[in-house]
Design a binder for these strands. Structure first.
Lengths: 186, 186
DNA sequence: GTCTATAGACCGATAGAC
DNA sequence: GTCTATCGGTCTATAGAC
């Protein structure tokens, strides 16, 4: 399973600088947004020059892709895993588990719509949204209000995953329980 | 009560161009983000030049302030109104009512952290968060999980307010009901 | 009120030395 | 693998004509 954390390259050697660039970029993307983060900002924080960044990544777009890819892969894997019939609780719980390691990435993606457009992630998230919507659909209740409840449940759970203590199981369980309650409200 | 919609100036005359600039700016801020929206983008959509914008607003910051101010004023008014003891349902419902006219502004503010920093809105939203947190606090349940539930409720409700049909009372009621359920889950 | 023209800073990206 | 130096482009903002 992919992670935001260090990973070896195809040739087996670990490139420390590359990882540090990705980590710093992710942190700045999440706090300032993609468009507002310049390569100079990233380089300055690392104590290197802009030109050095271009040795590791051919363009800003490629750096961003590299930062977002593990997140994208894990969400795709999650959606494949959830293909069959599952209860809303199982779906929301699996969603929370899968996304916790990618909290910073999640924040960055939700915040900056420009990044989604630039990196062709708009198509990716549209695909996610329709699949997730289908997973939580309830054929016994096809009302518009059902869609509102799924929005509250998913939006609220996603927000809770950004809390500082979201890694703690108790926090995650409480968040999932609250999301399930929102979904079942009537 | 302030609105995102046209409003007369102090001298009584309506300045159509000024309003059109604000409306276009808000739309672009909400879709692309503040940092990724240049004055040239705004001017082009209006069929005028960048320099013309500077006749109406001395700086980009001032344009942004003008765009966000009605939203800020209405939230401040809401918080004052909610000073006394209210039920969670009343608080969440009042929150939804107050923010519906400002959906686009809300989207823009949530999305772009750079705007919040540039415009000193970070202090504003921090103030909101602590007051809102206090309003929803439950002295019978001061557990960390309570805080998680308020996050799910508020985050989910806010997300639902961005739905295309959020102006419809039925949608709003369903969203508030779902948020209340999340808050009461145990 | 809107225009053309431009200043000055910063952007992403490249060339080439070491 | 990191540097200095620089390119062309865009940004915010200003000056001044109409």
């Amino acid at each position: 399973m992919a992670e935001d954390d260090p990973s070896p390259r195809r040739d087996g050697r670990t490139t420390d600088t590359r990882q540090r660039i990705e980590a710093t970029a992710l942190r700045l993307f999440a706090t300032r947004g993609f468009a507002a983060t310049s390569l100079r900002n990233i380089a300055d924080e690392l104590g290197i020059t802009k030109a050095a960044l271009y040795y590791h990544f051919p363009a800003k777009k490629d750096l961003a892709r590299s930062v977002f890819q593990p997140f994208i892969d894990d969400v795709d894997a999650l959606l494949s895993r959830l293909d069959g019939r599952r209860s809303p609780r199982e779906i929301l719980s699996a969603y929370a588990e899968a996304l916790v390691p990618h909290r910073a990435t999640l924040t960055a993606m939700l915040r900056d719509p420009a990044a989604a457009v630039d990196l062709d992630l708009a198509e990716v998230s549209a695909r996610w949204l329709s699949r997730v919507g289908a997973l939580l659909d309830d054929e016994d209740d096809p009302s518009p209000e059902r869609r509102v409840r799924t929005t509250v449940a998913f939006g609220g759970l996603t927000r809770a995953l950004m809390l500082p203590d979201a890694e703690e199981p108790a926090t995650r369980e409480a968040a999932v329980a609250a999301a399930v309650a929102a979904l079942d409200s009537r």
